[in-house]
Write a protein that binds this DNA or RNA. Structure first.
Length: 201
DNA sequence: ACCTGCGCACCAT
DNA sequence: ATGGTGCGCAGGT
């Protein structure tokens, strides 16, 4: 009675998680390439095999895939992600939903289904007994749209560029006391371009 | 060549 | 303010 598939699944999961930890401890990005490389140092598998296992682990929720700075990174969901997301009618989850959409980084937008899956991997989602997850999430997404964090188009949600630094109402004082900019290169392209209301494509 | 480690800038909370 | 992230580079093997 040996299930080589199931056993292999667990083993691969451990290898992947170990690879991620190793790479992170070196302060490097756990990308597909690095994970492949790290695993191949100890086990003789082809890159395609490793990346396929990686994708499968992501699909199963054993590994968290997040889009960040133009590339995908992989995380250990249990390693650092033990945040609790409480889903109840009186909790506003619009920020969490918007963040999920951002991290999914899907060009064509993300569906509620995908968003829910991502949230369940990134948080420990706790749902009120009489509440419906989808209803709550839909409300959160709707709120996110109303707040301008997301757009809703053809059943998919897309992130809008949002500085989200709205905590400046309390103390709107700017302290530009010192200016240590002397010989600094001025190679900062448009980084100050929020408030652009174009609809993208 | 490969692997490991780190400063620091960048970003979100 | 605080803490996570990862580029770029230095140092070790």
């Amino acid at each position: 009675m040996s299930e080589p598939d199931d056993v292999g699944k667990e083993v691969w999961k451990r290898w992947i998680l170990e690879a991620i930890h190793k790479i992170r401890s070196q302060k490097q990005r756990p990308s597909v390439e690095r994970i492949c490389h790290a695993i191949r140092q100890h086990h003789n598998y082809h890159e395609d095999v490793v990346s396929e296992r990686l994708e499968r682990a992501v699909r199963e929720g054993a590994v968290l895939k997040v889009y960040n700075k133009g590339q995908s990174s992989y995380k250990d969901p249990g390693g650092l992600q033990n945040k609790i997301l409480r889903l109840s009618p009186d909790v506003d989850v619009s920020r969490a939903v918007a963040k999920a959409v951002r991290e999914l980084g899907e060009r064509d937008g993300s569906t509620l289904k995908t968003i829910e899956k991502h949230l369940r991997q990134a948080y420990q989602v706790i749902v009120e007994p009489d509440a419906d997850v989808r209803t709550l999430l839909r409300a959160g997404a709707k709120r996110a749209v109303a707040r301008g964090l997301l757009t809703h188009h053809a059943g998919a949600y897309k992130a809008t560029d949002r500085p989200l630094t709205s905590a400046g109402e309390r103390t709107p004082k700017k302290k530009h006391s010192q200016d240590q900019h002397q010989l600094e290169k001025v190679n900062k392209p448009s980084l100050i371009c929020f408030y652009s209301k174009l609809h993208c494509e």
